[in-house]
Amino acid sequence: MRADNSRHIVDAARRRSEYTRAKAVQALRSLDAAGEPVTFEHVAKRAGVSRSWLYAQPDLRAEIERLRAVQGRDPASPIPARQRTSDASLLRRLEAANARIRRLTEENQQLREQLARALGEQRTATTRTGPPRAGASNPRSVTIGPC
C-alpha cells in the first residue's frame, strides 16, 4: 500500500495560492502608487494571473473596483489613493484656516486701535506745543512705516 502524500499536494497548493495572492496585491499597490489606471486587466497582466481569478477573489475585486471608482472621478489625478486627502482631513484643514483668519482679523483690529491711539496722542502732543516752526523739524515726530 502507498503512503498518503496528499498533505504535500495540499501544502503546495496553499503556498501557490498565497504566492499568487501576494503577487496580485503587490501589482494592485504598485499600480496605485504609480498613479496608473487600476483595472482588472492591468492588475492581471502585472501579477501574471487571470482576470477571472481576480473576479473570484471578493476582497481583491472590491479593492480594484474601489480604486477604479476613485480614479474614475478624477482621471487626471496621478496621486495614489492612500496619499489622497480624506474629507475629514480637508475639513480639519478648513477649520484651522478659518480659526487662523479669525485670529488675524482680531490682531489687525487691535493693531488698528493701537495705531489710532498713537496717532491721536501724537496729534494731541503737537497741538499742545503748537504747530512746528517753518524749516525746523519736530524732534518728537515719529514716522510709522512698514515693519
Rank of each mutant, 00 (worst) to 15 (best):
R100W: 00
R84A: 03
E18C: 00
G120T: 10
L94R: 10
A13Y: 04
A134H: 08
S141W: 00
S141L: 13
F40Y: 14
R140N: 12
L104F: 03
I101P: 01
D59F: 08
V38E: 06
Q57E: 10
R123C: 07
Q109T: 12
L90F: 01
A12D: 06
D32M: 03
R84Y: 06
D74L: 12
A118L: 12
S52C: 06
E41V: 13
C147I: 06
Q109C: 03
R29A: 09
Q71Y: 02
V142C: 03
R92H: 04
R92Q: 03
R2D: 03
K23T: 01
Y55V: 09
L115N: 02
V38D: 01
R102L: 13
S17A: 10
Q83E: 11
P37H: 12
A96Q: 14
S89W: 10
V43E: 10
E18R: 06
L90P: 02
P58E: 15
T124I: 13
G35L: 11
K45V: 15
A97H: 02
T85Y: 04
Q122N: 04
L104M: 05
E36L: 12
S30W: 04
R66L: 07
K45D: 15
R7I: 13
V43I: 09
P37E: 14
A56G: 14
T129S: 06
G130Y: 05
P78S: 10
A99E: 13
L28K: 02
N108H: 11
S30F: 05
L31N: 09
P58I: 14
N98Q: 13
A99V: 07
R117S: 08
Q114K: 14
R66Q: 06
W53F: 09
S52A: 13
K45M: 14
I101S: 09
D59M: 13
E95D: 10
L115I: 01
D11Y: 00
G135F: 03
A81W: 13
A97V: 08
I79Q: 07
A44Q: 07
L119A: 06
W53K: 11
E18S: 02
S50L: 12
V142N: 02
V25I: 14
Q71E: 11
S86F: 09
A33W: 01
R68V: 10
R51F: 02
P58R: 15
N138H: 03
G48C: 14
A96K: 12
S17G: 05
A88Q: 15
T39R: 15
F40E: 09
S30Y: 05
E65I: 07
A88G: 14
Q26H: 02
T85L: 12
A47K: 12
R15W: 00
E65T: 02
R7N: 01
R100C: 05
P139A: 14
R73L: 11
R66K: 13
T39P: 09
R73I: 04
I101Y: 05
A3K: 11
L28V: 02
Y19P: 00
R117T: 11
L111I: 02
R68G: 09
